[in-house]
Nucleic acid binder design. Structure first.
Lengths: 149, 149
DNA sequence: CTATATATGCGACACAGTCGCAACTGGATC
DNA sequence: GATCCAGTTGCGACTGTGTCGCATATATAG
């Protein structure tokens, strides 16, 4: 498991005003197993505070994104146009989305870090967010495809 | 300039039925200077065939994507949630989006190709599409930011 | 405790993209 | 070149995400 920040502590340190709604949303994101989209986040957070509004969910996501506390993913639009969110990890990593079974794999490698440094240097570009997403077939699904032509 | 396929020839070779609408759309994408979103593609293609419907634009984009003839980009959602399209190039390349001025830079490097091979091998994953997008500040905008804190 | 800047809920809205269905057509066949 | 029909299109209504303005509520500093 990649090491993640504690969002609540970081939010306090950054002077973000902690309302009950934000607490519920942040805790939900922090404790989530997989990748949450806005709708799922809303539903889960409502278990902690039943009155959170949809607009608040979007505004909080925007806030956390601006502070670089969460990353936004598209996951190759495997399930429509929605976005997914995850706590920013210490290490950059990429996402592999299988078009067959929908499974998402994560992968980190020094080559990726090296690429990042190379890009920043060669383009004189100040990188804030970096998103590498890959779509294709996982080992299982590729084998199945092979069997049924 | 990165070498691109000739979409019309490739479409014919693939046995794609060439309607007047598809011809207009494909030629428009092929000759476009920058990155087109669906709306811009529609407007431009209408100059060649004034009756093309919005739905046809989306259906054609879907078709070309399925055939791997064009790539879909988000460009870090710099201008809302729409998608952008470009003719598939011979070399994989990445997109740098500047949050300051909105400029998009493209960049290709052997490190990226190496990363791709490494990912496919280590994860036993059959890669179909790969999208690396980076958001941040270009040299100009980073310097301006510095000057006005 | 109070003041006030900031955040929230609500409802209406914007916008990209999708779908079912009747009418049309590209291109294969004769 | 006429015929045929599976595949394509236009139309219009619809979804699903995400946004916004404004009146009300509240977290935090003093």
């Amino acid at each position: 498991m990649l090491k993640r920040h504690d969002l609540l502590i970081e939010a306090a340190e950054r002077g973000i005003r902690l309302t009950v709604q934000r607490r519920a949303l942040i805790e939900t994101i922090q404790e989530a197993k997989g990748h949450l989209d806005a709708e799922s986040l809303w539903k889960l957070a409502r278990k902690r505070d039943p009155n959170i509004d949809r607009a608040t969910v979007y505004r909080t996501i925007e806030l956390l994104k601006r502070h670089g506390m969460i990353d936004e993913l598209d996951l190759m639009h495997l399930n429509g146009e929605k976005h997914y969110y995850e706590v920013k990890t210490q290490k950059d990593h990429l996402h592999l989305a299988c078009f067959g079974c929908g499974k998402i794999e994560e992968f980190a490698t020094p080559t990726f870090e090296r690429l990042k440094r190379e890009i920043a240097k060669k383009n004189e570009f100040s990188i804030q967010v970096m998103r590498l997403e890959i779509g294709g077939l996982c080992r299982r699904c590729a084998a199945q495809e092979e069997a049924l032509p």
